[in-house]
Design a protein around this nucleic acid. Structure first.
Length: 525
RNA sequence: GGCGCGUUGGUCAAGGGGUUAAGACGCCUCCCUUUCACGGAGGAAUCACGGGUUCGAAUCCCGUACGUGCUACCA
């Protein structure tokens, strides 16, 4: 009985342990800003790794030199840093499986590709891009839709399968530009298990003979991902759903290399979709729909500066919380999670298999919740920064703490602290007199003139005192306090917002309060 | 066109044969607050469609529709 129990347990655990440590990788291309989908892929990788005491590896997939963008790699790292999901290994951190940039691993891929040629699973192809294009044109003209370089027409092309061996050898000898392509089997079905989608069966016929090694000697994603995952001992490959159709190529490659026993467990993450319907969220949608798609500000060499969630006033805790909940939840009603809690509760079988439309309103709600729940210590540096960006340096920490706690529930974004609290430090530049003017009259004017006089005699500038004085004077003037509080508020903060008006006044101090009333009174004439 | 993957209110979603089908965002009403928020109470709104299987289907099966992804010497 004991024996039975333990084998069952081992079987269940085997999925994760399999004697080796869990190792996952986030493998972005340095081609631009890191958008929501990318960050979430990184986050799920991180959560899964940490949940299972594993390693989170960053690998830079820079095999396409034409798309390489200067600064993008550092940017990716900065984003991960801001989100608090630092890699355990990577180009900047190091590690024993480096180098972690595929461009720096260039020399190792050719050998593997050639091994595949030797074993008959791949072949050299000498077609020029123009020749391939012309094949497509011809086939299309014949009304064929499946215009692929595959079993149907590879023998009509120029490659080591169609050419006599001598000619192939000759072409190789003179170093004629060529690629290495996988020879996809004609009629096979590839079966594999996806941690999110369950068992999947896909026909090989639908996939073309993917290029494995490009003419410039760089591997394509298909070769590099398999070779590197093997070499880096990756145990779980979590990536976007867009990779599902080419999964058969990768699985076949693992098989052809004879590495099947080491193949990682697969998980294809759902997509994040545009809020207004069709398509996956793309970098352009932000501008079009008025919300950020990047984690942090990205200065694109071509398109200029684009703000990110960070600059907009998002807390990183809220940002990753929101992202994690877009495609995963723990099955309870809890929605607010810290990174640590997510690590503790994350599980792949609660990740959804369908895409989710991004909702900026909900994203802001997460941030609002995080601001409300954060203490002053957490908020202080961010709030100070917002003030500094507006040209106000704060020295009085105690005053700041008081104010932050007073207004934080009114702030959805960190940048809102400026609107909600700047009047405590500097007099409002503009007074919204239009909101009091319609009901303004000489009686009210008299009241405030009198108020200034009365206030100037007050010795203890406490809320109660300020309020009582105000109300007594209102009663004496036969005016309703309610009709006078709004004008006072506008005089002090510049508009119809902010915490209790007497609380504001007490923080402002007697002199400043009087000064601001006088100033507005002068505007009302 | 082909091949995948998917489909619970407008959005995020729980629920995986028997529920009045949770909850959150947003929207609306009211209370609190002589501002704006916060908070509280309520409301409108949903199982894509059609067939099966079953005493019973949001839940299982099959079709259809729709969405989405891939179909590059991009990842």
């Amino acid at each position: 009985m004991v024996y039975l129990l333990s084998t069952t347990w081992i079987k269940a655990k085997n999925y994760l342990c399999n004697m080796s440590k869990v190792r996952v990788r986030f493998a972005p291309s340095p081609t631009g800003g890191l958008h929501l989908g990318g960050v979430r892929t990184a986050l799920y990788n991180y959560l899964f790794a940490k949940k299972n005491d594993g390693d989170f590896v960053l690998r830079i997939e820079d095999t396409d030199q034409t798309r390489y963008v200067e600064g993008a790699e550092q940017y990716i790292l900065d984003c991960l840093n801001w989100c608090g999901i630092q890699p355990d290994e990577g180009p900047h951190t190091g590690g024993e499986y480096g180098p972690y940039r595929q461009s720096e691993r260039k020399s190792i891929y050719r050998e593997f590709a050639e091994k595949l040629v030797e074993s008959g699973h791949a072949y050299y192809a000498f077609d020029t891009p123009e020749e391939i294009e012309s094949l497509r044109e011809t086939l299309k003209a014949q009304g064929k839709y499946n215009v692929q370089y595959d079993f149907q027409n590879r023998l009509n092309m120029r490659n080591s399968l169609s050419l006599p061996p001598e000619e192939t050898e000759e072409l190789l000898k003179i170093n004629f530009p060529h690629v290495i392509r996988i020879k996809m089997p004609r009629n096979e079905y590839v079966h594999f298990h996806d941690m999110i989608r369950g068992d999947i069966e896909m026909p090989t016929a639908g996939v073309d003979d993917k290029v494995l090694l490009k003419a410039d000697g760089m591997p394509t994603y298909h070769l590099a991902v398999v070779v590197d995952d093997y070499l880096m001992k990756i145990t779980h490959a979590l990536r976007g759903e867009e990779w599902l159709p080419s999964a058969p190529v990768h699985i076949l490659l693992w098989k052809y290399f004879g590495w099947e026993k080491h193949m990682p467990h697969w998980a294809h993450l759902p997509l994040i979709l545009k809020p207004d319907g069709n398509g996956k969220l793309s970098k352009r949608d932000g501008e079009r729909l008025g919300f950020p798609v990047f984690a942090m500000e990205w200065n694109d060499p071509k398109n200029g500066l684009v703000k990110g969630f960070k600059e907009l006033g998002f807390m990183h805790e809220a940002f990753i919380n929101m992202l994690a909940l877009l495609g995963w939840n723990d099955g309870t009603e809890q929605e607010i999670f810290s990174l640590e809690e997510m690590v503790e509760k994350f599980s792949m079988d609660r990740v959804h298999s369908h895409g989710a439309k991004f909702d900026f309103e909900k994203a802001k709600w997460f941030n609002h919740e995080w601001i409300k729940r954060s203490d002053f210590e957490r908020l202080q540096p961010d709030v100070k920064k917002v003030f500094e960006e507006n040209g106000v340096v704060i020295n009085d920490e105690q005053k700041l703490q008081h104010i932050v706690n007073l207004v934080k529930e009114r702030c959805t974004l960190l940048t809102d602290f400026w609107q909600q609290a700047s009047f405590f430090f500097i007099a409002p530049k503009e007074i919204d007199t239009s909101s009091i003017l319609p009901k303004w009259n000489e009686n009210k004017n008299q009241f405030f003139v009198e108020l200034i006089r009365t206030y100037s005699f007050i010795n203890s500038w406490q809320i109660e005192e300020i309020e009582n004085t105000f109300k007594e004077l209102a009663a004496a003037s036969k005016l309703k306090p309610g009709e006078l509080m709004l004008p006072l508020r506008v005089m002090l903060v510049g508009g119809k917002f902010g915490p209790g008006v007497f609380e504001i006044s007490s923080i402002l101090g007697k002199e400043e309060t009087i000064k601001r009333i006088e100033h507005t009174l002068s505007l009302m004439k």
